[in-house]
Design a protein around this nucleic acid. Structure first.
Lengths: 165, 165
DNA sequence: CTTGAAAAATGGCCCGA
DNA sequence: TCGGGCCATTTTTCAAG
């Protein structure tokens, strides 16, 4: 947990790696204006410090047969912390659920679910999600299309910490 | 756009690249049980065919100063296709909005928004989102914590196309 | 930062089902 | 003919000076 402040070069590195996770270190270094070895050291340090959680190929769900994305809002009967964790553990074992966010307010969780088609989703919904212990109600919002799919956070290497909006 | 069916090796490659976007080609090849050159050819073909959209570093929003994730449900006044596209274009210009999904039903869009803090989000909400043309109403669901953050889709190299759900 | 050795990426070519 | 393996060259990685 090194909380050293990021400088402009670090932010450029992070931005480039976020935009292209397979960029070579030499190209990364060139863009950052330094030579390769110190650039690699910075990347390792950023990984070590937890700024970089990992690297992933971004796959086309549709082409892989997952034509349906559904956002499921789940309310629980009991919101005791142990029950919340219990539910989160169960969610972790469902491959179709890709993300699980706990929310403020009435609905407790937002799940992002992928499925091959609506039938497949409905089977998951009735057999797994609704059937799970402590689940009170589920509202499903079916995704029609996705127009923006940016990963992570906006990074402007030139603007350290102030924010316009 | 060759829609050749993926074989077991292709699925293994996709799974590995999704789990570790910076795996070396030789390691990828070893895992897939083939030698490096044909493995690289397969990767290039998968990229070319659109199965792989890209590669991205997965950054820690919190450590980068974006402590707040909000899901904003946006309803529009007019849902004429040209107005939907208009809104999507506007959304594309807001760096804080990372994802934009069009939904079935009453609320038209789900936006995933990151912000430095709630004040920052509220400024975005009032000055940008609510102020945008054609926006009828916005409901904000504040994220408390994220327990699952898997990327993409589940891939089981052994199981081609049937699905248990 | 620079150097240099080890590893990886990648194009060419041949081979077998 | 379509992939896969082997080989050689180039490029990158990464430890040491």
């Amino acid at each position: 947990m090194r909380r050293t402040k990021l400088d402009k070069i670090d932010r450029k590195i992070l931005r480039d790696l976020q935009a292209n996770g397979r960029i070579t270190n030499v190209e990364l270094a060139k863009n950052a204006g330094i030579s390769a070895p110190p650039c690699l050291r910075r990347v390792r340090a950023l990984e070590e410090a937890g700024f970089i959680r990992g690297y992933h190929a971004d796959l086309d769900e549709e082409q892989l047969g997952y034509g349906v994305t559904v956002f499921a809002f789940v309310g629980l009967e009991s919101q005791a912390e142990s029950d919340l964790v219990e539910f989160e553990k169960r969610v972790g074992r469902w491959p179709l659920v890709r993300e699980c966010h706990m929310l403020q307010g009435e609905t407790d969780f937002l799940l992002k679910v992928v499925a091959r088609d609506l039938d497949s989703y409905n089977r998951f919904l009735t057999n797994e999600l609704t059937a799970a212990p402590n689940v009170s109600h589920v509202r499903s919002a079916i995704g029609i299309r996705t127009s923006k799919r940016d990963v992570g956070v906006p990074i402007d290497p030139e603007r350290p910490d102030e924010d316009l909006d």
